[in-house]
Write a protein that binds this DNA or RNA. Structure first.
Lengths: 267, 267
DNA sequence: CGCCTATTTGATCTGATTCAAACAATGTGG
DNA sequence: CCACATTGTTTGAATCAGATCAAATAGGCG
């Protein structure tokens, strides 16, 4: 990311829920991946076993650091273990468009398995831990367990469905609903990953970043967020989002989670 | 599509180039698919053979007819043989966002292989011919030829890359560049499929449809297109696009085709 | 020719941007 | 522990890109 600082370093720990200690990285990785994949598919025992084979090197990143950058030709795929990532692209006038947010368990650059050169960047928003899984490893797993490949394929397709939904927001919805929608989506996905409690979840974003994601200026985000607050729909401060009135917000957002293609029990 | 009419039925034949007659559907399908896949990957002989196994039922559609509709649970995948499709979603106020255009050789609903329920619709813009390939068939091909599966996976990932590019346009670029970009993309893709000659290709869209794709009103599309014309960058009428000054247009659009991930010889 | 749809052009309005300044919160160094 | 620096948020005023409304014009087609 453009900014190299680390100001908000200790603002944020994504996973407060599980106090358990993990014997090794593999165990945490497996837990995260399992939780994620279970949110989008019913896993067979074979698939679970296949997922267990996905291992790699643990890497700790600071806030506002790039995982991969436009133009890179990565030979590994990242699994987010803890933290918060975004996919973004910077346009010539310096403006930035954030195209997606990623949470623990996500594998946001699975695309690099079949696309050599990154056409955008992926960066952290807070200090984050990732697992770098060699492409080689992934292809071996796919060879042995084609169904696991299909799981990841499904995941990349859902990722694309989210892009489409954002496109509709950017092209055809105004600020109020657009923001409402984004916040509904974040909460829904966080919930599915077990990372939300009582309508509250971590969302360590500045209003400018929210603007980069919704195609709005930071000023207008401030105003619009103010409206949402005024309408008693939500609270958003200190890097944390609380939805006070889910039905109200979902209605304002015209939100229907089906584009996330979550399994019934996860949604 | 909302409109059920067939007004522009004989306005348009996409593939004027090949006068060849095809003994059967399979041959045309194979030709189209090969051309498409060759534009995004270097194919091995095995992959070519695998692609040949992809067969199905030929279906003729009128203009403005849906191939699949939001909410559907298709059990087949469509390969566009001739015509012109778009992916779109309608929002509550009646506005529409077009999310992608598809040309002969594209398989725009490959996603349905791994996503049960359509979260958007896919419709024709002119009379079109598709091949309906049962999911079953596709899975059998993937089983026998995993590399063919990977080709399609790559294709769905490139599709997603195009969504991202459009997102950036919708969120962060103004009308002039946004429109210029779309037209650069269309021309580049058509050229890669061998469906453009001398900077001219078919683009059977109304200005309102162009607006639905760029998130602009038809009125503003008219004005902006006027500017592009005034700047001697292009001509657009009669369902056909001619780019008069590629460098000029690409510059205005800040267009870099790398997000299309075409093979060097195709780009 | 006449109908229908698409395009163009003009006038007005508005959601959102930009510029600017005040204010709040958080972290840093003395 | 306080003062200062930095970054983020809020509010106000001016401006602008694009939408909307409305009417005129142009193209195809039966």
């Amino acid at each position: 990311m453009p900014r190299g600082d680390d100001q908000r370093a200790n603002l944020h720990v994504v996973d407060k829920n599980d106090g358990e200690a993990f014997k090794n990285d593999g165990e945490l990785a497996h837990k995260r991946l399992l939780k994620k994949m279970e949110s989008i598919a019913n896993l067979s025992e074979e698939e679970r076993e296949g997922l267990r084979l996905i291992t790699g090197q643990r890497v700790q990143l600071r806030a506002y650091e790039d995982v991969v950058r436009e133009g890179d030709r990565p030979n590994s795929m990242c699994l987010l273990l803890d933290g918060f990532l975004c996919r973004y692209k910077v346009v010539e006038d310096g403006n930035r468009q954030i195209m997606a947010f990623y949470f623990p368990g996500d594998t946001p650059d699975a695309m690099s398995l079949f696309i050599d050169r990154m056409d955008h960047s992926l960066g952290t928003l807070v200090p984050s831990t990732i697992l770098r899984v060699p492409h080689q490893t992934m292809f071996e797993v796919f060879d042995q367990h084609p169904r696991v490949g299909h799981l990841f394929w499904r995941d990349t397709l859902i990722d694309a469905a989210v892009f489409r939904e954002w496109m509709v927001g950017l092209g055809r919805r105004e600020a109020y609903g657009r923001l409402a929608r984004l916040l509904c989506e974040v909460m829904t996905r966080m919930r599915a990953l077990g990372l939300a409690t009582d309508g509250t979840c971590e969302l360590p974003l500045t209003q400018a970043e929210l603007g980069d994601a919704t195609g709005l200026s930071n000023v207008h985000v401030s105003r619009t967020l103010g409206e949402l607050r005024n309408d008693n729909l939500l609270e958003f401060k200190g890097g944390s989002l609380t939805i006070l009135d889910w039905n109200g917000l979902a209605k304002a957002a015209d939100f229907d989670a089906s584009y996330l293609h979550l399994k019934a029990n996860a949604a």
